Amino acid sequence: MSTANEVLTRNNVKVFGKGTRPIVFAHGFGCDQEMWRYIVPSFEDDYRVVLFDYVGSGQSQQDYYDAVKYNDLQGYAQDVLDIMETLDLRNAIFVGHSVSSMIGLLASIREAKYFERIVMLGPSPRYLNDLPDYFGGFTRNEIDELLTMMQLNFMGWASYLAPIAMQNNERRELSEELEKTFCARDPQIARQFAEVTFLSDCRNDLKHAPIPSLILQCSDDSIAPIQVGNYLHAHLKDSTLRLMNAKGHYPQLSHPEETTTLIKQYLGNH
C-alpha cells in the first residue's frame, strides 16, 4: 500500500481553491492536468479543486508505471481511489475527459462514498463498433492501424491524430498544442494506454453506476460520435445529456466558456 506522500507525488496531485466541496478534474489519454487550465479558475472560489496526472503522463512519477497494473482501466481507477482516500474526499464532483469518464465510473462503482456526481466530457463506453447493435466510431482495423503507427512512427502518429481529434482547423495552435502534449509522452506507455483505452468495453458496467452523471457530448466529435452520447444517456440511469456547440474532442481547450457554463448549470441545479 502506498503512503499518502507517495500517492500525491506519484500522480503529481495539486489541491487548491477557497471552497470545501471537492471537484476532481481527470485528464484523458495522451494529456495531462494542464488541459484544464482554462476551466479551473472558474471553480477556485467555490470548490476545493484537485488536479492530477495519471502515471506516465505530465509530471507524474514514471517509476511507478506497472505494465500489468495499467493493462486495464481498473488500474487507473485504483489510482483515482488512492488519491481520493489520501485526500479524504467525500461526495466529490468528478470531471472526467474522454476515457477518464469511464475510469471515474469504474472507481465510483467500487467506492461510491467518494463521489457525488460525475461529469463526463466526450465519454465513450466502447470505441469499437459492435454492429449492428452498437456504433462506437471505429473499426478494429482502424484501431490496429493507429496502434501500429504509434509503434513505427510515434511523432508521425501524433501529428496525424492531433488535428483529427481537435477538429478546430481554423485554430491551428490548438492542434499544435495537442500534438506537443502527445509527443511529450513515453512512446511505450502511450501505446499501452492507447490500446487499453481504444479496446476497452465498459458497456456492462453502465447499469451499476451508483451516482448521477452529466454527459457533455460535443458536436462533430471524431473520437466519440453523437451515437455514443445517446447510447450512454439511454443506459446510464440518472444521466443528463447536453449537446454542445463545441466541435472536436477537447472542448475544455477549444470552448472553455461553454464547457464551464454547462458544468456550472448542472451543478447549480442539483
Rank of each mutant, 00 (worst) to 15 (best):
88 D>I: 09
176 E>H: 10
109 I>A: 15
123 P>M: 05
28 G>Q: 10
213 S>L: 06
33 Q>S: 12
216 L>A: 00
228 V>W: 08
216 L>F: 00
63 D>Q: 14
168 N>S: 08
51 L>H: 03
188 Q>T: 10
205 D>P: 04
29 F>E: 15
68 V>N: 03
41 P>L: 05
234 A>N: 00
107 A>T: 11
181 T>W: 09
86 T>A: 03
31 C>V: 02
187 P>K: 08
39 I>A: 06
52 F>R: 12
218 C>L: 06
49 V>K: 02
180 K>A: 09
85 E>N: 06
26 A>M: 00
90 R>S: 02
14 K>N: 14
73 L>Y: 02
19 G>P: 05
71 N>Y: 09
260 T>G: 01
148 T>I: 04
13 V>R: 09
134 Y>N: 12
166 M>Y: 06
243 L>K: 07
39 I>T: 12
108 S>V: 03
252 Q>S: 11
145 E>L: 11
201 D>R: 07
111 E>S: 06
129 N>R: 10
229 G>T: 06
235 H>F: 09
7 V>Y: 11
146 L>H: 13
178 L>Q: 06
92 A>I: 07
202 C>D: 15
237 K>Y: 05
117 R>Y: 06
7 V>P: 13
246 A>P: 00
257 E>L: 10
94 F>S: 13
40 V>I: 04
26 A>P: 02
15 V>C: 02
190 A>V: 08
223 I>E: 15
93 I>H: 13
246 A>H: 01
61 Q>T: 15
249 H>F: 14
119 V>C: 05
186 D>R: 02
140 R>T: 08
185 R>C: 12
97 H>M: 06
57 S>D: 08
210 P>L: 08
218 C>R: 09
95 V>G: 04
235 H>I: 11
65 Y>P: 04
115 F>C: 03
61 Q>L: 10
231 Y>F: 03
259 T>F: 12
144 D>Y: 11
